[in-house]
Simulated scan of single mutants.
Amino acid sequence: MKIHPGILALLSTLILPALATAADHAKPSVGPDAALARLKAGNHRFVSASISGGKPTAARRAETAEGQHPFAIIVGCADSRTAPEIVFDQNIGDLFVVRTAGNLVDDYALGSIEYAVAHLGSRLIVVLGHQKCGAVQAALAGGDAPGHVHALVRAIQPAVRASKSQPGDPLVNAIHENDALVAKKIRQKAQLGDLAAQVRVVEGYYDLHTGRVEWAQ
Rank of each mutant, 00 (worst) to 15 (best):
residue 179 D to M: 06
residue 160 V to H: 00
residue 172 V to S: 10
residue 166 Q to P: 03
residue 198 Q to F: 02
residue 212 R to S: 13
residue 129 G to V: 04
residue 187 R to Q: 14
residue 144 D to V: 12
residue 207 D to R: 12
residue 128 L to T: 03
residue 155 A to K: 04
residue 156 I to M: 03
residue 206 Y to A: 01
residue 202 V to L: 04
residue 176 H to M: 11
residue 179 D to Y: 05
residue 156 I to A: 01
residue 210 T to G: 11
residue 159 A to E: 00
residue 193 G to A: 11
residue 197 A to M: 06
residue 164 K to Q: 13
residue 168 G to R: 09
residue 164 K to W: 09
residue 149 V to N: 08
residue 184 K to H: 12
residue 158 P to F: 08
residue 130 H to S: 05
residue 167 P to E: 11
residue 155 A to Q: 09
residue 181 L to N: 08
residue 201 V to F: 01
residue 132 K to T: 10
residue 147 G to V: 02
residue 139 A to N: 04
residue 178 N to F: 01
residue 213 V to N: 02
residue 134 G to W: 08
residue 142 G to I: 04
residue 176 H to Q: 13
residue 211 G to V: 09
residue 148 H to V: 12
residue 128 L to D: 02
residue 175 I to V: 15
residue 175 I to Q: 00
residue 216 A to S: 15
residue 162 A to H: 02
residue 138 A to V: 07
residue 179 D to H: 06
residue 194 D to C: 07
residue 171 L to A: 11
residue 190 A to N: 06
residue 178 N to E: 04
residue 137 Q to A: 15
residue 143 G to I: 02
residue 206 Y to T: 02
residue 163 S to F: 01
residue 125 I to T: 03
residue 129 G to S: 10
residue 199 V to P: 00
residue 202 V to K: 03
residue 130 H to P: 01
residue 191 Q to K: 14
residue 151 A to E: 15
residue 171 L to Y: 09
residue 188 Q to F: 04
residue 143 G to C: 05
residue 162 A to R: 04
residue 190 A to M: 04
residue 154 R to M: 11
residue 189 K to A: 14
residue 142 G to P: 05
residue 191 Q to D: 13
residue 163 S to N: 07
residue 174 A to I: 02
residue 181 L to P: 04
residue 148 H to Y: 15
residue 152 L to M: 14
residue 208 L to I: 06
residue 140 L to F: 06
residue 147 G to A: 14
residue 165 S to G: 06
residue 134 G to N: 07
residue 185 K to M: 07
residue 209 H to T: 15
residue 127 V to G: 00
residue 178 N to R: 03
residue 147 G to R: 07
residue 169 D to C: 12
residue 141 A to Q: 11
residue 208 L to F: 08
residue 145 A to M: 13
residue 160 V to T: 08
residue 168 G to V: 10
residue 126 V to A: 01
residue 145 A to L: 13
residue 215 W to E: 08
residue 182 V to H: 00
residue 150 H to R: 11
residue 125 I to F: 02
residue 144 D to C: 05
residue 150 H to C: 11
residue 159 A to W: 00
residue 207 D to E: 13
residue 139 A to M: 01
residue 217 Q to M: 10
residue 155 A to N: 09
residue 195 L to E: 13
residue 193 G to H: 06
residue 154 R to P: 08
residue 205 Y to D: 10
residue 139 A to Y: 02
residue 136 V to L: 02
residue 191 Q to G: 06
residue 150 H to E: 15
residue 150 H to D: 15
residue 136 V to H: 03
residue 189 K to C: 08
residue 204 G to N: 05
residue 174 A to N: 06
residue 194 D to G: 09
residue 133 C to Q: 02
residue 127 V to I: 09
residue 134 G to M: 13
residue 171 L to S: 05
residue 133 C to E: 00
residue 214 E to T: 12
residue 139 A to D: 03
residue 215 W to F: 10
residue 169 D to R: 09
residue 195 L to T: 10
residue 169 D to G: 08
residue 213 V to S: 00
residue 134 G to S: 13
residue 202 V to N: 04
residue 175 I to Y: 05
residue 176 H to F: 09
residue 157 Q to S: 11
residue 177 E to H: 05
residue 183 A to S: 14
residue 215 W to L: 04
residue 161 R to H: 12
residue 196 A to T: 11
residue 155 A to W: 01
residue 207 D to V: 10
residue 149 V to W: 09
